[in-house]
Computed example of a mutant assay.
Amino acid sequence: WQNRPLNQRYCALFLDALFVKVRRDTVGKEAVYIVLGITPEGHREILGFYVGGVESSNGWKEILQDLRNRGVQEVLLGVFDGLTGLEEAFRSIFPKADVQRCVIHKVRSTMNKARKKDQAELSIDLKKVYTSSTYEEAEEVFEMVKKKWKKNYSRELASWEEDLPVLLTFLGYPKEVQQYIYTTNLIERTNKEVRKRLKTMNSLPNIEAAE
């Protein structure tokens, strides 16, 4: 299954990892890298999953290269979270593709650094940015958000400002598909089902069992 030939062209690749407990002498958490692709006809399919080690950009690069070796030649868009080095790894294999950083992951990360009393209001303000109709409108809204919150969250807002181009890539796509590509939710639903099935297991005896 992992070696089957793949389509040459995909509209989008969604990248996400979940973690499972695997025994190798001792029990430890290991990453399961999963790639979901959408064909030009709108068909969704899991292109591959790879078990082992700690999630890293180098691990993703090997996986993306494997997909290319199996036939994937063109990708319009890559959708993933903000793992350090992942964007560079993706672009090294698919240099012509657009990149969409998962907005929901970014919001969660920001909320984790915000004071509890500010979280609800800050979340609403940030939502106004990524629910704008155009990139230009989103930039204007962000300037207002930055002016309002920069005193307390200058570092977090500087990170948003730096990432804004890859957080709002989806606004350049047709409105009919924007709701599907601004986040990794499509693949996270799959991961949620896997976690549900693994919940009753304390650990898996080996890598083969995990696969």
Results as ranks from 00 to 15, higher is better:
Thr131Tyr: 12
Lys106Gly: 01
Leu122Val: 06
Leu122Asp: 02
Asn112Val: 07
Lys96Val: 09
Val129Asn: 01
Lys146Trp: 10
Leu77Trp: 01
Arg101Asp: 05
Arg91Glu: 12
Leu77Lys: 01
Thr110Ala: 08
Ser123His: 08
Lys96Met: 11
Arg70Pro: 00
Ile63Tyr: 02
Met144Ser: 15
Lys113Ile: 02
Val32Asn: 04
Thr131Lys: 13
Cys102Pro: 03
Asp118Thr: 08
Asp66Tyr: 05
Pro40Arg: 09
Leu122His: 03
Glu139Val: 15
Glu62Gly: 13
Thr110Cys: 11
Leu77Ile: 07
Leu64Cys: 00
Gln65Lys: 14
Val103Glu: 00
Thr84Gly: 10
Tyr135Val: 13
Gly48Phe: 01
Glu139Leu: 13
Gln119Ile: 06
Thr39Gln: 09
Pro40Leu: 07
Ser92Phe: 07
Ile63Trp: 01
Phe49Ile: 07
Lys148Met: 07
Pro40Thr: 07
Tyr50Leu: 14
Gly48Asp: 04
Ser92Lys: 09
Asp66Gln: 13
Gln65Ser: 15
Gln119Trp: 07
Ile34Ala: 11
Leu67Lys: 04
Val141Arg: 11
Asp25Phe: 12
Gly48Lys: 00
Leu86Asn: 02
Gly42Gln: 09
Val51Ala: 09
Ser109Gln: 15
Gly42Ser: 10
Ser132Val: 06
Pro95Leu: 04
Arg101Ala: 08
Cys102Tyr: 02
Thr110Asp: 08
Ile124Met: 13
Val99Thr: 11
Leu86Pro: 01
Arg91Trp: 04
Val107Phe: 02
Leu36Trp: 00
Lys61Asn: 10
Asn69Thr: 13
Val107Lys: 02
Ile38Tyr: 01
Lys61Ser: 08
Ile38Asn: 01
Tyr33Gly: 00
Gln65Pro: 05
Lys116Ile: 13
Gly53Val: 09
Val27Arg: 11
Ile124Arg: 15
Lys29Glu: 15
Glu143Ala: 13
Asp118Ser: 10
Gly48Ile: 03
Gly82Ser: 10
Gly53Lys: 07
Thr110Val: 08
Asn58Pro: 03
Val27Ile: 15
Asp25Pro: 06
Lys151Leu: 14
Glu88Pro: 02
Ile124Asp: 14
Gly71Val: 07
Glu41Asp: 13
Ser92Arg: 10
Leu67Ser: 02
Phe80Glu: 00
Phe94Met: 04
Lys150Cys: 14
Gly42Val: 10
Asp25Leu: 12
Gly53Cys: 07
Gly71Lys: 09
Gln73Asp: 13
Gly53Pro: 06
Phe90Asn: 01
Leu86Ala: 03
Tyr130Val: 06
Gly37Leu: 03
Arg108Pro: 08
Arg108Gly: 05
